[in-house]
Design a protein around this nucleic acid. Structure first.
Lengths: 152, 152
DNA sequence: GTCGAATAGGTGTGTATACACTTATTGAAG
DNA sequence: CTTCAATAAGTGTATACACACCTATTCGAC
């Protein structure tokens, strides 16, 4: 009689769900994003926007390709994310060194948004530090970086 | 004279980017998703779809709310993801026990897609296991689960 | 039985993500 | 100087995600 093929039997499926690095990483990312977005809400920034602004601030006027590389985001994704930040008046997108490039720079409003967001970020980050424990957070961050390095 | 406020000085910004659990988690999730999607491509499934199908298969006929809870996905997000799977003919959405509920069940095509995808998943999972090391992957998965637990 | 709270689910809107493809510009080989 | 590969960026399309808000159904107190 026909049965569920071995490859799809119940313990095997359970094992796959339990161990899949991608599924578990995405699941945790969804979960923690809601937490950070929740804390950041009063600043008007979503986590992604906060991160892009911080990176752009740090690396100062920076090309779109470079910013995409730094944040491990598809360049075309970043282009669209930047459009939103530009509409909100938080960044300027200026001509670059040659006529192909465009440089991203924070506006005054962009700086102000960061100044408002950082104390909120500190609250939620501390919450996570306490929850995971300082040591585990450190090794966790290292592992996350190794995952990124895996695919470069 | 006016300077960059202390809260936004360069070392502080660098520190925030380096330690932010949310940013680093999302970044790693983007990175690994591309890897898994790349391997799974011949199956016609994206990672998210693979995961939803696996979970639905395992918990087999299951309500939408329950499935959303299991996968830590917003219910309204899952509804839209399920619509795509239904259009592809991989799942059926049937009436549930009462007239509010709807049950998700795999179709024959859904099973076949999983059977095709699993060997591809095994390849990419093994790649990650080798890259991170078995032990570190195990502790990494535990930490990911703790992150999810943090926000429940 | 009636009514209101709880439960299950969908829709409107906006953001985030990425692949395939295209345009514009630069730079290098000849 | 021309031509062509490389580089920088944008668009079309589709999926993924979630909040605010809505409808339909069920259940329990009365």
């Amino acid at each position: 009689m026909e049965e569920t093929p071995k490859i799809l039997d119940e313990p095997r499926c359970r094992e796959i769900g339990r161990t899949c690095a991608c599924y578990n990483l995405r699941r945790a990312a969804r979960s923690i994003t809601r937490l950070y977005d929740d804390f950041l809400r009063p600043s008007g920034l979503k986590t992604t926007q906060f991160s892009v602004l911080m990176t752009a601030k740090m690396r100062g006027p920076v090309t779109i390709t470079k910013l995409a590389d730094l944040t491990v985001t598809e360049r075309t994704t970043l282009t669209r994310n930047l459009t939103i930040l530009e509409k909100k008046g938080l960044i300027r997108i200026e001509p670059g060194l040659d006529r192909r490039e465009r440089q991203v720079a924070l506006t005054e409003a962009g700086h102000e948004a960061l100044v408002k967001a950082i104390p909120l970020w500190e609250m939620v980050q501390e919450h996570v530090e306490k929850g995971l424990g300082q040591d585990r957070l450190v090794s966790f961050l290292i592992e996350l970086r190794e995952v990124v390095a895996l695919t470069r």
